[in-house]
């Protein structure tokens, strides 16, 4: 079946099988391999992307379900000139990644966290609750939590 969708602000028209998962469309048809497949069972969150500006797991949605909608992947996060988004900078500054496999998903989820809590009080418990859908097997999470709280406490950048 032929579907159209906007990926990172670019209109794409692609031919997919009804059973094609969104993550497979992104990685294999569009070459956007920044979105990772960790568990393929909707647990680990490495495949997190934004669908109409909500974080979702792209391994648990059919490409057909995303037709005519707007997708943002990790490739759409950095600035046009290649400089990092401030939340990416914050991950770098706080050692928020080690092997880096979960990082694209962590960043996509973090973007929603900083948007949701930018004018609210936030504590570590809230950040950890919001990160429940993303697994990291290296960091022990502390440095990821620090990356997000550092951004929320110190960044003057507005989204």
């Amino acid at each position: 079946m032929q579907i159209s969708l906007v990926v990172n602000n670019k209109l794409e028209s692609v031919d997919v099988e009804p059973r094609t998962l969104l993550v497979d469309l992104l990685r294999e048809k569009l070459g956007l391999t920044g979105t990772h497949v960790g568990c393929d069972t909707s647990q680990c969150g490495a495949c997190t992307v934004h669908l109409n500006s909500e974080a979702i797991k792209s391994c648990t949605i059919l490409a057909a379900q995303a037709a005519d909608q707007k997708i943002t992947t990790i490739e759409g996060v950095a600035n046009q000139d290649g400089s990092l988004h401030p939340i990416q900078e914050s991950f770098r500054n706080n050692h928020g990644l080690q092997c880096g496999f979960c990082t694209p998903g962590m960043i996509m989820t973090s973007l929603k966290i900083i948007e949701k809590y930018k004018e609210k009080k936030v504590n570590e418990e809230i950040i950890r609750h919001e990160l429940e859908g993303n697994f990291c097997r290296c960091t022990g999470y502390q440095s990821i939590v620090d990356s997000i709280s550092d951004y929320l406490e110190n960044s003057s950048e507005k989204l």
Binding site: S42, G45, T48, L51, E54, A55, I56, K57, T60, I61, T109, K112, E130, E132, G133, N134
Partner: peptide, 9 residues
């Protein structure tokens, strides 16, 4: 329920 991504869908 579940986690944020699951609650969104």
């Amino acid at each position: 329920i579940g986690d944020p991504q699951v609650r969104n869908r």
